[in-house]
Structure formats: structure tokens, C-alpha cells
Design a protein around this nucleic acid. Structure first.
Length: 230
DNA sequence: TCTAATCTCATCATGTTCCACATGATGAGCACATTAGA
């Protein structure tokens, strides 16, 4: 009948009745209270659920020596063969059933401990990953800002070149562009710019105008030579 | 194949130490736990 307690924990079911009809005396009683009552009945000498009423009904803690011996044995071997169980029980003055129960509980609690340790490790690793992600995001943000500044500079230089080309002036005797902006924005003097591999440059490519382009032709001619729309 | 012993798991009850935790004990196992020996 105990199984009904487990199957229907939220509703009282009379453990003495196979028809699952609540009994009047305990109607509305919760499983815990019911179990306590049953335990009390056992302890009080009442025969219930096949309990013979013998032995010490009180739960006794094992002595330090007993626990020490059991721990020692557990460290040697987690499982408990019948022979070892009987031997241990005799040695410790315990019931073999108690030894078996102690090993069962010990295994369960050992497993829980391992699970907790594993959880702690995973949590630590997770937090480290979160931190690393934050660093990467910060780095990405800085790079984006730098890219934005570079793109602004490129756009400004492009428009400067375009306006000079459209007005037909602004070049010196050799046809070089004389920038009206800051001296640092001179279009052709950037040393960190690499020559483009092809004739067609994309919008996002940095423009590189080689010096020879200024020698005999205007910038406009150079651009048209390279198929670029102005 | 059957059966007893044993296992895991969830839970309870109680003792110990400050109201929660540790630990001994119990019962189920559901397309009905697994395993070992007769």
C-alpha cells in the first residue's frame, strides 16, 4: 500500500484500503503526517505493515569508530558483497541490513558530491567564457570605431578629389592635386597605402594614385583611364 | 526461467546544532529496476 503514497503524493489515500478511499480519521492528512503517524504507531508497539515490533525503534547514530571502519571499507570498494557485509556487520556489531543501508546512502551521497563538483567546474568555465566574450566585444567595438574614422577620412578625400576634378583647377604645374584641406590629407602621399591589384576599385577600397599619374595627365584622366566613374 | 539479493532514486524521520543540515531508514521500481545463481 505504500506505493500509493508515492503515486499520489498530493492526495491522501488510505494506506490500509486497496480501494483508494480516504479514511475518515485521516482525511485531509498529508503524506508526511501520515508517515509520521505510522512510524509512531510502530514505535508505540502497534503491529503495522508487517512490522514485528521488535528491536530498537529509535534511530541511532553510528559511533565514530563504526563510521571510520565503514569509510575505510567504502574507500576500498564501493560495492558490498554479502561476505564482506556480514563480516563488517559482525565486526561493528551492526545488523547486516544497516551496513547495506549505510553503503547505499554513502554511494548516493558520494555521487551527489561528484555532481556538485562537476557543476562548480562547469560554472567556473562558463564564467571565464563570459569574461572572454566581453573582452572580445570591447576589442570589436574599438576596431569598429577606428574603421569608421578611416572611412570618414576616405570619403572626405574622395569628395575633395572629385571637386577638384570637376572644377578643373586646383592642380599645380605638374597636375598634382593641391588639397584645400589639411596638409595631412594629401591624397597621393600616404605611404601606408598599397597599390590596388586591379583597375576597378570598390567603394570601400582606399584610393591610391601613383605619382606617374600626375606626370603627363590630370587626375581626371587617370581616373578615366582606370575606368572609374567620378 | 525463477527468485532472492541487491541496486538506484526519491523521500522521510530524526538527531544535532541553531532552523537547516546530516544521516539512518524506507519503499518503489509501471511497456513492472538489475543481477547472479540454482
Amino acid at each position: 500500500m505504500e506505493q500509493y503514497d508515492e503515486l499520489f503524493p498530493s492526495a491522501y489515500v488510505d494506506s490500509s484500503s486497496p480501494t483508494l478511499v480516504p479514511n475518515d480519521a485521516a482525511q485531509g492528512e498529508r503524506p508526511r503526517a501520515r508517515r509520521r503517524r505510522r512510524r509512531a504507531a510502530r514505535c508505540g508497539g502497534g503491529e503495522l505493515d508487517g512490522f514485528d515490533g521488535g528491536g530498537d525503534p529509535k534511530k541511532r547514530r553510528l559511533s565514530d569508530e563504526q563510521v571510520e571502519m565503514l569509510e575505510l571499507s567504502f574507500r576500498e570498494e564501493r560495492k558490498l558483497e554479502t561476505g564482506r557485509k556480514v563480516h563488517l556487520a559482525a565486526e561493528l556489531g551492526l545488523d547486516p541490513k544497516q551496513v547495506a543501508v549505510w553503503f547505499q546512502n554513502r554511494r548516493a551521497r558520494h555521487k551527489n558530491k561528484l555532481i556538485e563538483e562537476e557543476f562548480a567546474k562547469l560554472k567556473q568555465a562558463h564564467e571565464a567564457h563570459i569574461l572572454h566574450k566581453c573582452h572580445l566585444e570591447n576589442e570589436l567595438m574599438r576596431l569598429r570605431e577606428r574603421l569608421e574614422i578611416a572611412e570618414d577620412e576616405v570619403a572626405r578625400l574622395r569628395s575633395a578629389v572629385a571637386s577638384h576634378a570637376a572644377s578643373g583647377d586646383g592642380g599645380d604645374a605638374t597636375g598634382r592635386v593641391v588639397s584645400s584641406g589639411s596638409p595631412s590629407s594629401s591624397f597621393s602621399t600616404g605611404t601606408d597605402q598599397q597599390p590596388g591589384g586591379g583597375d576597378h576599385l570598390g567603394d570601400d577600397d582606399l584610393l591610391y594614385v601613383p605619382d606617374y599619374a600626375y606626370a603627363d595627365s590630370s587626375v581626371v584622366e587617370w581616373f578615366s583611364l582606370h575606368g572609374m566613374m567620378m
